[in-house]
Amino acid sequence: MAEQASIDTSAEAGEGVRRRDFINIAAVSFAGVGGAAVLFPLVSQMAPSADVLAQSSTEIDISAITPGQAIKAVFRKQPVFIRNLTPAEIAAADKVDASSLRDPQTLEERTKEGKTNWLITMGVCTHLGCVPLGAGEGEVKGEFGGYFCPCHGSHYDTAARIRKGPAPKNLEVPEYSFISDAVVKIG
C-alpha cells in the first residue's frame, strides 16, 4: 500500500514539475513584458509634445513684401527667409549654368511654378547651422547678391545656392504651399 502510494506520487510529481516550471516561466515572462511595456511611455514622453507639434506648420502673410525685400519668419523655432526677387535677381540666377554648381539646382526647381519670384528657404547655413546675413535690411548679401554666412564665409547667390565657402549644400527649401496670393503655409 505504502509502495503503491509512493509510485503514484512520483508520477504526479513528474507531471506537476512540468506544470510548475511552465507557471514560473510564465510569471517571469509576464514581469518582463510588463517592464518592456512601461518603457514605451518612458521613451515616448521625450518626443515633441502636442503644443510643439501644433507649431510644425506656420502660415505667413507675404502681401507686404515688395520686390527686392526679404523677411525673416520663424518656422519650427528656426529662421526661414522669404524673399521677393526682383527681375534682375531672377535673371542673375538664371544666367548661371546649374550643372557647374556644387549643389546643382535651378531657380525654377527651388521655387513654385508661376511664383518664381518667391524664394523661400530656411535661414540655416548648411555648413554648421549659423543664420546667414542678407535677409534683413542693410545686411551684407555676399559676393553673389544672395546671402552670406559670417561664421565661416559661405556665399549664397540670389537663388540661395552655395557658390563659395565651406557649405556643402544650397539653403534648404522647406515644404510649403501658397494658400492664396497673400498667404504661404510652410510645413
Binding site: 514622453q45 509634445s49 502636442a50 510643439v52
Partner: peptide, 25 residues
C-alpha cells in the same frame, strides 16, 4: 523634471502642460 519649470511665474502652467501636451505626461 524634464518638462517642469521651477519658476513661480510658469510652474503651475508647466504642470498643466505636462498634463495636457506632453506625451503620456
Amino acid at each position: 523634471a524634464m518638462h517642469y519649470a521651477p519658476n513661480a511665474l510658469v510652474a503651475f502652467d508647466s504642470t498643466e502642460h505636462i498634463m495636457r501636451d506632453v506625451n503620456w505626461g
